[in-house]
Nucleic acid binder design. Structure first.
Lengths: 262, 262
DNA sequence: CGTGCCAGGTGCCAT
DNA sequence: ATGGCACTTGGCACG
């Protein structure tokens, strides 16, 4: 797989450009579907499902090649104004201002950005084919196990989750098909010796309370080398549990609240 | 009111900077709470409520002065990775890469951005005190109803708004021309089954308290198909209410404070 | 297409 | 801190 590097020519930077020049560069950029970044002082109007007015201030405007538009203030996670992908754009000067207008059909919405000064204009041909993967959180995996106990083993029946014992909280606490107590420790990533130790501590604690056999199962996508040895030594078990599969299972189920399970 | 213009010195632009220089500029920028814009080739890791991996590609990273972080790909409305305001940041080089790490406590979440090449680095002191106003929100609709109760029906008299009952808050609570209690639930978009359910819950709660007839009216611009059926089944009513029209009515009236109505 | 449902939702305001 | 809920929610899956 070759590394792709952007050549210098594919990124154009104008500092404090005259608005006329800016309009031309933006129009060119829009035509060739480049990514545009406009930083300057502007006001913004929005008309659509709702409507809004934003008085002048310094903002960053991102125009992506799929036609999405983001207007960002210097604070906050959310864009103050925006347009989702697929809208039609135009840029021009009018009465000494640079106007950028983005129109979306269905629903009909318009945002109009009016710059009186540009600090920076960047027109870029960014290349991004990097794969993105999102994995479930440990909480999600816990939910999945409660919802589908067979993920641990056939006949497993959860009794509680996050059960408090002396050393901490047991992820899932239940019973196997033969009525033996089972403690499940879930890890989202590769489970190391530390996880095994954690599980062992819980088992010790529970054994001290109930005085009968207690099984311990470490559920994780992968087991570190040293961890396997340790598991065997301590008489504990391992069950492969894939975060991605857990996430899929949850997506299919409509149960959201963890408290609805038991 | 004087117009504020950013002086040229308050915006620093580095093109294709060595990563060492970039790390220094970013660290300085973080300390002085400037807005940072980093464009380059990077991979991103996220660990927190969930976890994610993003393989290398060209991205735009915005670091705002409140500690929010946005990683944007060249397409899409959403940032591929992010951190809400208030997180702790650091930047440094390691093995020839520029690392930017943003950590949030409660919930503990970390994103790590690893650049192998920067195309552009901008450090800015943006000034934005422009007021933002949004019209035709659900709050506007509520205000409009309080100001012009006839929007619901002739003779409707509001008693309270945002009345707290067991399951939540009643948007508008009042009485019809015949002295029957009325609960109004307002939605600014198409009202679905969920909205009907919400209304039904409030009615149940109020009926349990007052032991007399209670009408329920769902006010929204549109009713989803399944919702209509459900409304009829539950003996509830629908009143068309347009957010834009509400905003219009408010503009004509000069009453702004919602507390001045009752 | 509309309708429903999830999101690393985020944000705002209440107790 | 937790709860309730709106959002120009946006996004996706599904009938």
């Amino acid at each position: 797989m070759g590394k792709e590097v952007l050549s210098e020519e594919t990124i154009e930077v104008l500092r404090n450009p005259p608005l006329q020049d800016a309009a031309r560069t933006i129009t060119d950029g829009l035509r060739s579907h480049r990514t545009l970044l406009i930083i300057g002082n502007c006001r913004v109007d929005y008309q659509g499902r709702a409507s809004s007015k934003l008085k002048p201030g310094d903002r960053m405007v991102i125009i992506k090649r799929d036609g999405s538009v983001l207007v960002h203030r210097p604070t906050g996670y959310d864009p103050v104004n925006w347009q989702p992908p697929g809208c039609k754009l135009q840029a021009y000067t009018e009465k000494g201002n640079l106007i950028v207008r983005a129109v979306r059909e269905r629903p009909r919405e318009t945002i109009t950005i009016q710059f009186n000064k540009l600090y920076l204009l960047t027109s870029m041909a960014l290349i991004d084919r990097g794969e993105f993967s999102l994995y479930a959180s440990e909480e999600d995996m816990q939910r999945a196990v409660l919802l589908h106990p067979d993920l641990i083993e056939e006949g497993f029946k959860p009794i509680t989750y996050e059960k408090k014992v002396e050393p901490g909280f047991i992820d899932v606490y239940g019973m196997d098909r033969d009525g033996r107590l089972v403690i499940v420790e879930i890890k989202r990533g590769t489970a190391g010796r530390e996880a095994v130790l954690q599980l062992a501590k819980y088992i010790g604690s529970v054994k001290g309370e109930v005085n009968r056999e207690v099984r311990g199962i470490l559920a994780a996508p992968q087991l570190a080398k040293g961890a396997q040895k340790m598991l065997i030594t301590l008489g504990l078990e391992y069950k492969r549990l894939d975060p991605k599969r857990c996430a899929e299972l949850l997506r299919r189920s409509s149960v959201r609240k963890i408290s609805e399970f038991l």
